[in-house]
Amino acid sequence: MSSLFGQCSTNGINNDVTFNVSGQCNEPTSTFYEEITATSKDITVIFQDGDDDPNDGIDYILNYSNSFITGVLDLTSNTFDSTYFATHSVHLIIKSNTYVKVNGHLVLRYGSTLTIEPNATLEVVGNISFPPNYNNCSDCNDATLSSAEIASARAEFEEEHQNSVEIYDHGTMIANNIDYNSDLPVELTFFKASKDVLNNDVILKWQTATEVNASHFNIQKSNNSKQWKTIGSIEANGNSNITIDYEYIDQINTTDAFYRLEQVDFDGRVEYFGPIKVVSNNIKPSFDVTFAPNPLPNNSDININVLGDIENMDLYFQLVNINGEIFFEKTFNGVSSNIFYHKIPNEILDQKGLYILIVRCGNNTLKKKLIKM
């Protein structure tokens, strides 16, 4: 066993190993680059608190440093078949009630897995990254191929590489950054999502501060943040040193959804931003709103009915146009039953067009479209 794990176990680094100690296993304060390599078989590395106490703080500190972040813990494979798939892999498991802190970076390479069990914590003071090793892909460095063919081979290899790494986070994972590929020439200012409930849309927005050799952005979606599907693509601006804004609109899910950006260079290299989570709208309000007529003829009043769990609740009404101008606004305090009726006079809406009726009760809000003929 190398010095990195010397105080935790006497097992060899090329074998399966379980670290199981009571109290804190604190590694030396020196810089390290620890590469656990699966050559002839899979390697499983398990961290498990010997006294199984979830409240005893950090159980393992790898490469503890008081002054700066140093070191890399690298899980890799040197054994590949003819199609460059890793035939042996390293599996890192953090058992329940165990807290592991890595003062450095964690690198997950081809075929490796990271499992954080319930009530377990992995804290990485540096970055978690997934860099591909092009030495394991002959077409990625073949001088007899065209630049386009090499770029295509690298893009395919990177995708296979990223798909081969699996993270099962059932506990708590803390990291400075999760970076699928480093040193790529797009600097992102922000990447965020918002919901347009009225139109049942998710609006994704991002902004770049700089772009170098940037081809396009693939927008990817997942229901579990592990398996991803490309749902759209937006062309990048190639080379830029000014801020550029981007936007993509998707339909709201009935379940929670995750989004990330796959930024692709002209040479085929990729970088990932995100993921971000969008919470579903599957929890429906405890009331419903109907009104008639709709579309609204000229000289007709708006008859609004609210039905549901609203007794003794406050009802808030607002009627706006598509520019956000308010035409009607009123709060009805402590309605007397679960059925409520109100009439809005026709003369309030002086122009034809689309209006939005907003009704709020407690923490729930409903929005309905109204067309004035």
Rank of each mutant, 00 (worst) to 15 (best):
A38F: 05
S40K: 05
K41L: 12
K41H: 09
D42L: 07
D42G: 01
D42H: 08
D42Q: 00
D42W: 02
T44I: 08
T44P: 00
T44A: 05
V45E: 03
V45D: 00
V45S: 03
I46T: 15
I46M: 08
F47Q: 01
F47W: 08
F47C: 06
Q48W: 03
D49G: 06
G50P: 09
D51V: 11
D51H: 07
D52S: 12
D53H: 03
D53A: 09
D53W: 09
D56K: 07
G57Q: 06
D59L: 06
D59Q: 10
D59K: 12
D59E: 06
Y60W: 09
I61W: 14
I61F: 14
I61R: 14
I61G: 10
L62P: 07
Y64T: 09
S65G: 12
S65F: 10
S65M: 13
N66H: 11
S67T: 15
S67A: 15
F68D: 15
I69M: 11
I69Y: 10
T70W: 07
G71K: 10
G71D: 02
V72N: 15
L73S: 05
D74Y: 07
D74S: 15
D74Q: 12
L75P: 06
T76Q: 12
N78C: 13
T79I: 09
F80Q: 04
F80T: 06
F80S: 01
F80G: 00
F80A: 01
S82W: 05
S82A: 14
S82V: 14
T83K: 03
F85A: 07
F85Y: 06
F85N: 14
A86D: 10
A86G: 01
T87W: 00
T87Y: 00
S89Y: 04
S89H: 10
S89C: 11
V90N: 03
V90T: 03
H91S: 15
L92R: 10
I93S: 05
I93P: 04
I94N: 08
K95P: 02
K95R: 15
K95F: 01
N97H: 11
N97Q: 08
N97S: 12
T98S: 10
T98I: 03
Y99A: 14
K101P: 01
V102T: 05
V102Y: 04
N103V: 04
N103R: 05
N103E: 11
G104E: 01
H105R: 04
H105E: 09
L106M: 13
L106S: 02
V107S: 14
L108K: 07
L108Y: 01
L108H: 00
R109D: 11
